[in-house]
């Protein structure tokens, strides 16, 4: 899976450089978030600009990251969701769980 990471003001940004976040690749994202929290990173932003399609496994990977953040006293937020990806969060009520921002910059101001 193509993930690009960047650190800004102690916030680790993961850019998911894939069109699909699904059962085929979502374990890689889940593993990456787990690894970052385990090495002591506290704040992670997952940027989904390039993701056009997400399935229940992709949502599950993000939920796993969110729970991992809580157990490490950290936080996990999301930015730049395409409309149909956002609609999947709404369908599964996960928009009530995650803090979702319109852009990377907006998210970075809200940690």
């Amino acid at each position: 899976m193509n993930l690009k990471t960047e650190e800004k003001n102690e916030i680790l940004i993961i850019f998911v450089k894939e069109e699909r976040l699904d059962a085929h690749n979502s374990n890689d994202l889940k593993g990456k978030m787990q690894e970052l929290f385990e090495v002591g990173k506290k704040n992670i932003l997952v940027d989904l600009t390039d993701v056009r399609f997400i399935d229940s496994s992709g949502l599950g990977a993000l939920v796993s990251g969110f729970k991992n953040a809580i157990s490490h006293q950290g936080s996990l937020k999301l930015s730049s969701l395409q409309p149909q990806v956002k609609s999947m969060f709404e369908l599964t009520r996960l928009h009530r769980v995650f803090e979702i921002f319109g852009s990377t910059a907006e998210a970075l101001e809200n940690f």
């Binding site: 496994s57 599950g60 999947m88």
Partner: peptide, 9 residues
Amino acid sequence: EDRGRGIFI
């Protein structure tokens, strides 16, 4: 939960 949304969707 991480899982259990597929059939629901």
